[in-house]
Amino acid sequence: MESPAPAPALSFPPQTFQKLSPSSYLLRHLQATPPTRPSGRSPSAFREPTVHTNSLSHAHGSAVVRTGDTAVVCGVRAEILSLKYGDGKSQGRVTVLRSNEDEELMNDEEDGGEGELRSRNLIVTNLELGTGCSRDYHPGPPSDFAQTTTSRLHRLILSSTSSLISPSSLRIIHDDEIKAYWVLYIDVLCISLDGNVLDTAWASIIAALRSTRLPRAFWDADSESVLCDPEMKLGLQLGPLCFTASFGVVSTGAEEDGEEQDGSKVVILSDPDEFEEGVCEEAVMICIREGGTIARIEKGGGLLCGMEGLGECVRMARSRYETWEKAVRDAV
């Protein structure tokens, strides 16, 4: 007969535990007092950013941003889109108008500008993850994640609330007629990926745009083309800054078997890393504009975070805005 020997305590090295049961691993950390994340951060702690600008020689503006183990390089390069003969006249708003038409035109100008950026594809944003930045992404066509993140970044740039780039700084005008446009190619390469690439990529885009210097372009009537002055460089006219903050939401009671436990509480994880992003199903992204107004909220994946939680996120996103703003201002 077997003697009822006490079952040996089942113990693993932390790495094994993490692989076997990622969600319990995260929850055990969060249930500890004080709650800590596997990375050693407290739930509300963001990773400190470092920003460097203009380290690339062939881009018109560039930035390297690092938060923790996530590092991206953003390069802005401008090329010229020449318009066909006469095409720019309608865009130039030069027609002399009777007084009552003036106001209408001004309104048109205000939101029509953004349409100009959109309809002519003057801003080209791309995020590349196939650089060996993580074991999950390979060179070649962009993965679904890269495509969705790219389109989120692109929407942020073009969104009317952020109105970051004014179309007027991209117009090349001669005799009140738009002859050509600058097209800004914004390429973000992820060098190292450890979660929350959106915030880091967005900050790198802002920093790179702020550091962008374009040569003064003018229309040369003799050659009927746009030429640039090699000596004179001009910065872009940028609208109010905005920065994003991402959060992962997880409940300490939500075990894998779905049992509700007493005393479960919702934990908001600021700036989630790769492991936490894999575990947290619910994600919140808040974009804060200069002055503290909310420019955009993206939330999905669950119902854990209610209005209260959202308010908390907004508060943290505001303080994150300050951090980013300072880091970018110091770098440019």
Partner: peptide, 14 residues
Amino acid sequence: INGPSDGTTPIVYA
């Protein structure tokens, strides 16, 4: 995301 469909030209300096 691609640029303008007609393509763009690199900068030509005077």
